[in-house]
Each structure stands twice: as structure tokens, then as C-alpha cells.
Design a protein around this nucleic acid. Structure first.
Length: 394
DNA sequence: TCTGGGGTCCTAGGACCC
DNA sequence: TCTGGGGTCCTAGGACCC
């Protein structure tokens, strides 16, 4: 049996801003862009008391709260505080940590629990240590699996600490509306509600199993087990390289002006490309997406025969992709992203192997040589390289 | 005043290969 | 005549998270 914590920083972006600007203290504060199409990223609790919520259009937030202070986001600042709070847990408590996002993580404290230190007191110490080191508040959920720890950190905010033991499910979890269930979003919640499943308790009921199976296809088991306190307790400790990198932007006004769109495509491609390089990655698939005035998203993608890291080439392909598919469309948003990412070192290495292979008169001999090299290299990369090799040669 | 931007994962159909 | 079965990759869309 493991002891898992979920640590969730309270109104993270807004709290970081308030620490940086003491004059915002005790004033309603929202982090948001400042154009007419911006939405709220994060709001402090005072602003929330006026009804201001994340993802709400900023004009609406300002209507609800006349003296709302609006600050544009400063991601460098948030990354700084994110590293700080992770560091507190890592250096003072445990390094078995799974980083969920910029403002949350799971921590496995099983090895710290003993007769003198129960999970609740450890959680309290973590909360205090984070507050002392960063000035930031957090909520912590305590449970035996990740899902319940996550539900626990949501249970009481801000600065809450809540256990979600299995025996507490009937009183703490099951009365909650189905919408609160992690991994059940708006459309699934709607579907379930329409069919009479309105609380997490309904989801947990044995007699609803066949109904769930009918409504949710394969996923039903995971949700059913979660609602009954069964789930994953293993933390993912790898800080994985990203699977895709991209940027998008909403225009101030809908547009079909290709010069304007092209200018934005250049900007977005530049930005994504810079991040691609910072991660030392190359890509094979280019994606261009648009959002039309009816809010529908459309994507066109192009997979190349080899990995690419030349900005001019990428840009040319992106612009062609746009022109071939979306020319003359009126759009409200345009986006660029790269996927099918591969480590620079691996790309270089595989390209050399393939050149050797193609040039070689004796394919079998080269193939054997490749196998030998693959045996010797870093195990972590071997699978990717073999996969690519198979793909490319076939 | 009218609804962001960064991601991950899954699905389903079609192409293609053996 | 009427047409397999398994596998992978690509594409587009959608659900979900923060």
C-alpha cells in the first residue's frame, strides 16, 4: 500500500504576480491578455468571489468585478516559482515526484511514513515548507492512488489538506456531481447526466456497469474503478521530451487577408522552431490549423520522408500547406505545430546509417553492421532508431 | 465588447506491406 | 465466380487536462 500526495498550487499565476507586486495584495486580480478576445488564465480568490473564473472572457470578468486588476502573463516568473516549489519537495521530502504541470505534482511519501510520521503530518510539513520558501499556498490530497490524491487536493481550497481514504469515499467522493470527476469532461458528463448518472456515487454503482459500458466504450472500466477507489499508484518519474511543439494565435478580428495571415504564420513558425531547437529536437510532421468563425478547428498535416531542422524549408512548407488547404478562408485563429519529434543525436546517427545502407552494395552486410551498432548505443534510444530504420528501409 | 493557448491521448478510415 | 488477416503509418477530428 502506497501513500501518494497530490500537491496543487492555489491560483498559481495570480499568486506569483501578487508576490512580485505586493501592491496587488488583497485586491481582486486576474492574469489575462488585454485584447477584446482575451480570456482569464488565473484569478485570485478575491476575484473569484465576484464570479470571475479561469477561461472566462476578460470583458465579462471586468463586468462582474469593476475594480479587477488585470496583469498580462509572465511565464518566466511562473517557471521560476514552479522550480522552487518542486525543489522544496525534492530536497526536503522525497524525490519520487511526478510533475503533472507547471503548478501541480504527485509525490510518493510511502518511505517517509512511520509510527512518528503519519501522512497527514507530512503533508502539513510540506505545505508549510512550500509557503516558507516561496510565499505560495497549496492544497494537498492524500490517498493510496493517484486519482484519489488528485480528488483530495480539489476537495478543499485554498490551503486545504484532505485525505481520500477508501473508507471515506461514501461521504467525501460519492456525493460529488459527476462533473467533478477527473478525466470526465463536459461532453462525457453531459452524456452521463442525460442517462441518469449524476453523481460520482452513481458511477461507482455495480448496477450501472452495463449502462456505463454502453455509453463510454473502452474507457468505462477506468472511470468505474476510479469511482470505487481502484487505480494507478505508480509515479512517472521520467521528464519526457515533448511529443509536439506548437504556437497559435487568435486575431483581433476575423481575417481572410493572406498577407496578414502569412505574417502570423512566419511569427508562429519562428516561435515554434525556436522551442524545437531549445529541446534539441527535429520534426517530421508539420501541422497547420485554423479556427473558423463558427469555432470549428481544422488541421492539415504533412509528414515528410525525413527529419528536418531547417527554418526556411519548414516555413516554406508551412505556407504552402496553408495556401493549398485554407486559401481564401476567413479565420479567427491560425496555428502551427510540429510533431513526430526526434532527438538531434538520433537523427544524425540514423541518417548516417541509412546513407551507409543505401550506398552499400551488400545490403545484408550493412544490415548486420547496423544491428551491431544499435546493440552498443544507449539503450533508451535503441527502440526509436530500430523503428525508424524499419520504417525507412521498407 | 463575444468565448486563449499550451499540450496529450485516442479513434477511425485508408494506404500499403507481407 | 469474389476476394484473408495482421501489422504499421498517415490523417483529421475530438475529448480531455491545466
Amino acid at each position: 500500500m502506497k501513500y501518494i500526495l497530490h500537491i496543487d498550487m492555489n491560483s498559481f499565476f495570480a499568486s506569483c504576480e501578487a508576490i512580485d507586486h505586493p501592491e496587488y495584495l488583497n485586491k481582486p486580480l486576474a492574469v489575462s491578455g488585454k485584447t477584446k478576445r482575451s480570456v482569464v488564465c488565473s484569478a485570485n480568490y478575491l476575484a473569484r468571489s465576484y464570479g470571475v473564473k479561469a477561461a472566462m472572457p476578460i470583458y465579462m470578468a471586468q463586468k462582474l468585478c469593476k475594480n479587477l486588476i488585470v496583469v498580462i502573463p509572465h511565464f518566466d516568473l511562473y517557471h521560476h516559482y514552479s522550480e522552487l516549489f518542486i525543489n522544496v519537495i525534492q530536497t526536503q521530502f522525497t524525490n519520487i515526484i511526478e510533475i503533472g504541470s507547471i503548478d501541480e505534482c504527485y509525490a510518493d511519501i510511502t518511505s517517509l511514513v512511520n509510527a512518528k510520521n503519519d501522512p497527514l503530518s507530512i503533508a502539513k510539513r510540506i505545505q508549510i515548507a512550500i509557503k516558507r520558501a516561496t510565499g505560495l499556498g497549496c492544497s494537498i490530497g492524500i490517498a493510496n492512488i493517484k486519482f484519489l490524491a488528485k480528488m483530495g487536493s480539489e476537495y478543499k481550497k485554498p490551503m486545504g489538506i484532505s485525505t481520500m481514504w477508501k473508507q471515506e469515499l461514501p461521504t467525501k467522493l460519492w456525493p460529488q456531481p459527476i462533473e467533478n470527476m477527473f478525466w470526465i469532461g463536459r461532453s462525457t458528463a453531459q452524456l452521463l447526466r442525460k442517462n441518469g448518472i449524476t453523481t460520482i456515487g452513481d458511477l461507482a454503482k455495480k448496477e450501472n456497469k452495463s449502462l456505463l459500458q454502453k455509453l463510454l466504450d473502452k474507457n468505462w472500466v477506468v472511470h468505474y474503478e476510479h469511482a470505487n477507489g481502484i487505480g494507478d499508484d505508480t509515479l512517472d518519474l521520467s521528464h519526457n521530451t515533448p511529443k509536439s511543439i506548437g504556437s497559435s494565435e487568435t486575431f483581433l478580428n476575423d481575417t481572410d487577408d493572406f498577407d496578414e495571415i502569412k505574417g502570423k504564420l512566419i511569427e508562429l513558425t519562428r516561435d515554434s522552431f525556436n522551442r524545437l531547437q531549445r529541446h534539441e529536437l527535429q520534426c517530421k510532421t508539420l501541422n497547420v490549423s485554423i479556427k473558423t468563425p463558427d469555432f470549428k478547428l481544422h488541421t492539415k498535416s504533412l509528414t515528410l520522408t525525413k527529419y528536418i531542422n531547417d527554418f526556411e524549408q519548414i516555413l516554406l512548407k508551412i505556407i504552402t500547406l496553408y495556401q493549398n488547404n485554407f486559401a481564401d478562408k476567413t479565420i479567427r485563429l491560425v496555428g502551427v505545430s510540429f510533431s513526430n519529434l526526434f532527438d538531434n543525436r538520433q537523427v544524425e546517427f540514423t541518417n548516417e546509417l541509412f546513407d551507409d545502407y543505401y550506398k552499400s552494395p551488400d545490403k545484408q552486410e550493412t544490415s548486420n553492421a547496423m544491428d551491431e551498432i544499435i546493440q552498443k548505443i544507449n539503450h533508451k534510444f535503441a527502440k526509436n532508431i530500430i523503428d525508424t530504420a524499419k520504417n525507412k528501409i521498407s
